[in-house]
């Protein structure tokens, strides 16, 4: 018998072991839901799959009686717009400021301490400030996401630039590169895939800030809806919404990964020469 740390599951066993916890959770839910519903048919805490299905149907494919909107899609669109805008803006700032900080010591001396200090401010603590300054509209939500993840992206990019071997930068100079050419042709293309990696890591926080902002002030959005229906204990809406958000998060992560793989083939066979 081999040591435990040397025993590896076969391909099939790996898939099976991966599915197992999901299946167990599902079974546990079904069992608990059945028990509660048997005791009280009006129980709202663990709704049966049938009522969850009905709720999904009515949110996604029936127009809302009051507004005439298909709520799930309206919410999804609103949330994805805010998230996309906030993440895009942060990624852009990360790239521009991060690369400038990493590549140009004069920039770094001036901006790095500021970015460092800003990254220590808990973004949620200044959400009220954002609401006061930008109002309760879209800007403050996008701003919260940006303030939440941009400092991380900037610092990560700066670090990635500083990690490039010095030999490469010297070599580029012996090939006649100016500072600008060096940034454009040597640094930028090498940190782009790393930026996409960092964006994938920061998406979790981006969702967190988005839902927090929507929970406090919004008229539509996935986070808004969850917090709205909480008042009615509508677990049949909350649970599928949470699953939907998880699915969206998974899909964006997956798409970013595929994008990196397609666009930067050199990045995946070692990254370094």
């Amino acid at each position: 018998m081999k040591r435990l740390i040397n025993q590896r599951p076969s391909r099939a066993a790996q898939v099976l072991l991966g599915i197992l916890p999901f299946a167990l959770l599902l079974l546990a839910y079904l069992w608990a839901s059945e028990l509660r519903l048997a005791a009280n048919p009006n129980d709202k805490l663990l709704p049966a799959f049938s009522s969850i299905g009905e709720a999904i149907w009515s949110m996604a494919f029936e127009a809302d009686k009051r507004s005439g909107n298909y709520l799930l899609w309206v919410d999804t669109l609103a949330s994805l717009q805010r998230l996309g805008l906030g993440v895009l803006l942060s990624a852009l700032m990360g790239l521009v400021i991060g690369v400038a900080n990493g590549a140009v010591p004069l920039f770094r001396a001036g901006l790095s301490p500021l970015v460092m200090a800003l990254s220590l401010i808990p973004p949620m603590a200044i959400l009220p400030v954002l609401f006061i300054v930008f109002g309760l509209g879209e800007v403050s939500k996008v701003a919260l996401i940006t303030i939440g993840i941009a400092p991380f992206l900037i610092r990560d990019m700066q670090q990635r630039v500083l990690e490039l071997p010095e030999e490469q930068l010297i070599k580029a100079q012996t090939l006649g590169a100016s500072s600008w050419q060096l940034i454009l042709r040597v640094i930028l293309p090498q940190v782009l895939p790393r930026l996409l990696d960092a964006v994938r890591l920061s998406l979790g926080s981006a969702w967190l800030f988005l839902i927090a902002a929507e929970a406090i002030a919004a008229t539509e959005g996935l986070g808004y809806r969850i917090f709205l229906v909480r008042r009615y204990l509508s677990m049949d809406v909350i649970l599928p919404y949470v699953l939907w958000i998880t699915l969206l998060a998974f899909l964006t992560d997956y798409l970013l990964r595929v994008l990196t793989r397609r666009s930067f083939p050199w990045y995946y066979n070692g990254g370094k020469p």
Binding site: E167, Q168, I170, L175, G176, R185, W266, K272, P273
Partner: peptide, 29 residues
């Protein structure tokens, strides 16, 4: 600068450029 060429023991070439692009870079700049 371009007066002095260098080859280091490692990391002398650019991992994000293919062989041809690596050599073309100097002339392109």
């Amino acid at each position: 600068n371009a007066d002095r060429g260098i080859v280091f023991q490692r990391y002398s070439v650019f991992p994000h450029l293919n062989v041809l692009e690596n050599v073309m870079l100097g002339a392109e700049l």
